[in-house]
């Protein structure tokens, strides 16, 4: 069965934060709420390396948030999407402190919120909002196998240029979001 996935390539991000606003608009988030954040990172290597650390749900194959949620408000569905249910959520924020990717966000209503990979758009055959706006294809959505090839291509290109990068999220058969990270 062909699996769809998203690739987030930090090395390409130019920090325009289009994705953040598109996400906000698409999902009707309140002022002060985010599902996707972009943080600027700077490192002194042989010269200044700057990259943008984008944080949003990776829809892990084995989600920690689902495991820790005391009321089962977070469920990974058959389609591989990890969805949080506002009605069940207690607002205890245990998932927030447990998520290794800092992808769970505390909303202004006190509960948590997270990326749904725009499941409502996917259902209409569209790609997630953040992907649709990204001007530099730092975020790509497509067939998982193709994306893996693309990711590995980008990886080797970057490595030949001397950048220290690695790819996350490929090991599990169904992790929906892969990250190409600058380290």
């Amino acid at each position: 069965m062909s699996q769809h996935a998203m690739l987030v390539d930090e090395s390409r991000c130019i920090g325009c934060k289009s994705c953040t606003v598109a996400c906000k608009q698409e999902n009707g988030l309140q002022t002060g709420d985010w599902w996707l954040r972009v943080w600027r990172r700077e490192q002194l290597k042989d010269h200044l390396v700057r990259y943008y650390n984008t944080q949003s749900c990776r829809h892990c194959a084995d989600p920690v948030c689902q495991a820790v949620c005391p009321v089962g408000a977070i469920q990974r569905g058959e389609d591989g999407l990890v969805i949080q249910d506002d009605a069940k959520c207690l607002g205890c924020h245990v998932c927030v402190t447990s998520c290794p990717h800092n992808a769970m966000r505390i909303m202004t209503n006190g509960k948590v919120g997270k990326c749904t990979l725009c499941s409502h758009r996917l259902a209409r055959g569209k790609e997630p909002a953040c992907v649709s706006v990204c001007p530099v294809n730092s975020r790509v959505y497509g067939e998982r196998e193709e994306l893996l090839l693309e990711a590995n291509k980008r990886l080797s290109e970057l490595r030949t240029k001397g950048l220290r990068v690695h790819l996350e999220g490929t090991e599990k058969e169904q992790t929906a979001v892969m990250y190409l990270l600058v380290t």
């Binding site: 959520c89 207690l90 607002g91 205890c92 209503n109 006190g110």
Partner: peptide, 8 residues
Amino acid sequence: CQHCTDSM
């Protein structure tokens, strides 16, 4: 205590 928002 997590001081839940919607506490049981």
